[in-house]
Write a protein that binds this DNA or RNA. Sequence first.
DNA 1: ATACCAATGTTATTTGTGCAAACAAACTCT
DNA 2: AGAGTTTGTTTGCACAAATAACATTGGTAT
Lengths: 394, 394
Amino acid sequence: MTRLPSPAPSTRTAAPIRDHNRDLVLEVLRCNQPISRVDIARRSGLQRSTVSAIVDGLIEERWIREGQVLKTARGRRPTMLTMNDDLVILVADVRPTQTILAVVDLNGRFLDRTLVPVITNAKQGVDAIAEGMKRLQAQFPDKTCEGVGISLPGRVDKRSHRLALAPNLPWVGFDIRGALQKRLGLQVELENAANACMLSEQWFGRLQGIRNAVLVTISEGVGAALLVNGNLVEGATGMAGELGHIPIADSGPQCACGQVGCWEMFASSRAALRYFHESAGPSQTPTIQQLLNMEASGNEKARIALEKQARGIGRGLRIVTATFDPEVILFAGDITLRWDTVGPIVASELSNRMLTGAPPKLIALADGEAARLRGAAAVVLQRHTGFKRLTVLR
Amino acid sequence: MTRLPSPAPSTRTAAPIRDHNRDLVLEVLRCNQPISRVDIARRSGLQRSTVSAIVDGLIEERWIREGQVLKTARGRRPTMLTMNDDLVILVADVRPTQTILAVVDLNGRFLDRTLVPVITNAKQGVDAIAEGMKRLQAQFPDKTCEGVGISLPGRVDKRSHRLALAPNLPWVGFDIRGALQKRLGLQVELENAANACMLSEQWFGRLQGIRNAVLVTISEGVGAALLVNGNLVEGATGMAGELGHIPIADSGPQCACGQVGCWEMFASSRAALRYFHESAGPSQTPTIQQLLNMEASGNEKARIALEKQARGIGRGLRIVTATFDPEVILFAGDITLRWDTVGPIVASELSNRMLTGAPPKLIALADGEAARLRGAAAVVLQRHTGFKRLTVLR
DNA sequence: ATACCAATGTTATTTGTGCAAACAAACTCT
DNA sequence: AGAGTTTGTTTGCACAAATAACATTGGTAT
């Protein structure tokens, strides 16, 4: 009967719109910094007043900060905004041979790096990472750490946040995330190395604005990450992108997976070594590095081996391009060291295909280690700032 | 100085939220009809009042209608809501051999079908479709037509709305959409046949709630549609999913595309005929239909041919599953007629793979024609009701 | 009969969001 | 000093959803 005025209902109706626009502002700012509020408005299509309100919030949350006031010819001077590089992310690139730790700021710049030895025992290995990160963090007492990102050489189950498949790292099933969170008191994110590379390029590199891309890592094995419509493809069980073991030939040496004809057996660095043995004889046993160096200094048999590897790569990529029709294909791993030899061959293999349309652009990543580390940081940023990338408009 | 009250500013700020929730309500209603307002609220997570407002709008727009009032034990009786099946969509399934026209309601039910002869001349062919559709529409004067959807045996360029690639239909480049819109005065949407099948299953069939799936059409050639994260994959230039020509073998007969080893040469119905010739001799020249019938009645050589084809299919699918990790793989085309023979072989080929995780479920579509027609309707619905599918929350 | 209960559906109020336009600030040029 | 220009802020408005009170519609207990 008596109608009480509602006391403090705290509705959060239009929140998704504001979140979305917040992410949009952050995206525009990140990619164009330093930038003024008005310029953000122009580039995002939002109203100046809206941008102001959102920017206030972002400064409050310490994501961004006001920088210098620009000198212009006429009118009020714009105060430039930048990402707040007092916020940092602790990242690790875990590899079978070594683990690298680093401190990365919001712009993907490295403040410091260290090395941690590999420990096969999962608990001890993760402990060593935690210790190293603590030491790193202590070196920057005036920085605030936003979170921890780990790049791993295997598949991460998105539900349990554990390694589900990792041929070269015996940490499968161990609760890496939980252990680190407990030791460091920070939010931890895990991601597959290839996916991390892709995210690194999307956030800080050459994929800005690109919606469809494939990234192939070519080292001892072959791995891949897939970007479709601006999002990483996970698949139903998180296993999408296991391209190393797609069958591309009827015969050939048996793969560790038990099958015959896996792409990996024709396109990996190991395959290049096998090709070299076949022509130079079994007495020659260079490492991959040595083989690449031999080719660089003009060794003909090394060149032929790499050429065969390049054709193997191209063959599998024909499958990938027909399937995805990507704008860009990125390459990471050993092979990028001799890309001036391998790249053109891969490109020509790829152009021998029937389908119309421009072939995808091929790009070799010079520094895979940096990409994995930055990618680990990008995972953390993505979790904190919203999941959509570069979506447009209000 | 004088502040005029803005006359007709037409802000549309919160429109995307309303649109999204409208789509959500429509989705919940469509999949659970007949359903009451309260039940929609429960299932969608929206508030009852919000649902009421949106439902009013949908009734106003004639998308849905109130139905019978349910008898319940206690409390006010709910009035059930259903899709308004006075709204229909005119659809066509254009094939190289024949074109079928149909009238479909919002639930994917067929009200009528007709046949139109194939005319190689594009203008005349489209005219024939327009005439047939006009006649069909005239049979249902009390129904309102919402739009026109066309399934085509080729790739549709999303920008120009024209056929960009169609080996078996000489209508490439002709403005089918423009011509039909002019003749019929209705919005027209074009879509590739495999994509149409996928959409049909997503809207009306067995893909409801499934986010990752692959659909393979196996007839004279091999085609595919890809569903990733609930959306069809288009690729950078709209060519994604051209799986018929992925290389799966080193050797074999040359394909029409000029390459050797295309999947199509091992998995299509034509491949099955070739296998049959190889064992039964070249004097035997059955059609595909006849071959399938021979197998059904116990012909051993026909069985072997289909078995070889099944292995060819499975081989390519190993690539597809490794790449996408789909929950479901759907099959359409001739092959589904003998699925009880072919299906188990494909499944066993697929289970011989290293990667962990449950293998995808395999489903054969019994009636590809109906799927393409319903899919053409789904394209129209999708354009009219928003592009996102089954996204959650407020 | 009357009061009460249990559900469904509606209405009024509150909150949060963006836009548009007016306003304020800061600086240059004449 | 004052006009012009550009940046950034304030204010009033429209719109959408949440909330909670209210209305509706039947059954059932007293």
